[in-house]
Design a protein around this nucleic acid. Sequence first.
DNA 1: AACAAATGTCTAGTTATCTAGACAGACCGG
DNA 2: CCGGTCTGTCTAGATAACTAGACATTTGTT
Lengths: 243, 243
Amino acid sequence: MNEIVRGRGVSLWSQISNILADDVLKGRLRQGEQLPSAQELATRFDVNRHTVRRAIATLEQRNLVRTEQGRGTFVQEQILDYPISRRTRFTQNMRNLNIEADTEILEDVREIPPVAVAEALGLGCKEYVYRIETLSHADGHILDHSTVYFPAARFVGLPAVYRRTQSVTRTLSEFGVSDYVRKHTRVSARLPEAATARLMKQPANRPILHVQSINADPRGMPVQYGVTRFSGDWIQLVLMADD
Amino acid sequence: MNEIVRGRGVSLWSQISNILADDVLKGRLRQGEQLPSAQELATRFDVNRHTVRRAIATLEQRNLVRTEQGRGTFVQEQILDYPISRRTRFTQNMRNLNIEADTEILEDVREIPPVAVAEALGLGCKEYVYRIETLSHADGHILDHSTVYFPAARFVGLPAVYRRTQSVTRTLSEFGVSDYVRKHTRVSARLPEAATARLMKQPANRPILHVQSINADPRGMPVQYGVTRFSGDWIQLVLMADD
DNA sequence: AACAAATGTCTAGTTATCTAGACAGACCGG
DNA sequence: CCGGTCTGTCTAGATAACTAGACATTTGTT
């Protein structure tokens, strides 16, 4: 297993601290996962509990773990850098971040959209859209609540495809839109609507990241209007130069 | 310059030891070079002399430096691995080892060789050879004392070429021998003759590596007979499989 | 309420690391 | 041979790291 060396000029607490930090950073310990108790670690490393505590104290300072009296110490949920560029693809993003994301489809309906959405999609005020509501989980956390609109006339029967492919990119691809780029992205922080707060299991007074985006095909024709509400606590959007 | 950190779990002596070891291994301190005195290092690192001494003690254990009372501490001359194969070329070897070698020509004469040499070169007992005596230095150390014989009939005027090219390989090349291989190599340890000991500035009772070799052209005709006396202390021949 | 299992906080003692100073011994150049 | 400059060795004390044990506090379960 992991070895510790005495009397070579590197203190035990520092060695233990490094080993544990490595476990966290390399993902051997997952976000929110509970570490072995101080006593267990002391036994494993053949060292006093105080020594382990010192190691853990430094990890806490580095914000890698969080200790709760009477409960234990846990891997600190890190703010997730969520890169956004013109070609951001959610599924791809999560895969890059080495996170198992699964998306739950809450609802899909065919309806007349709000005026703002119709305008954004370049539709007349009597044209139908599909509206799809999703909730994404990652590592046991709720990641975002999304509402996406597609022009119904252009993508007949889209919800069924979406349910099968579980991916915007693959769905559009099946309708012949093999490429699309983000026409614009608007990011704001706001308090969640009641429904969103309930869905994301977070207090109504904790702000969320509200991202509204429009994707267009290569000819500039809008294919998707979406609103994604990220948990502001542990998502941090990174705006990137266009590629 | 080089920084040292207190109170982060790594002892000062160990940090200093690492810095100095790095200086030696990366060649910032050369073989045989004197390190700053313990007091100077203590001042530079803002640390007690004893602490520096402890760092140096570990370096001594690792055989990276050697300390001499009253003189100072010096980078330990490492044993030099000297690879030998059928295609060994002295100049090339030194270049591979990243060592500046310069060869001083002590003497070149045209003479009747000893019988053993004549036989080895496949010459009759009345045929002349050129005998060239050289002394090689590298990094300020004397590396070897060589005696090489060339058949004079085949290589008329060779010494002049050798003085110009400073290389056996290039010299033979100018005589049309573009390739040659080592026909055989005999290695032994023996005490140096008086002249050699004096030349190599080493005691007469310290053994040297005595390497006798014959090089032949691709048709098997011997082109060179040589004896090289290496300083046994810091040269270590590595016999390699033929290439 | 009782209990087990965590973390948090003390005290006390040991060992390792670092500092300070003094002095001996070897080397070297004038 | 003498003085300056090295390394080598010793003593003594201060600080950091580690161990041992006791007990408090918090949490979750029974």
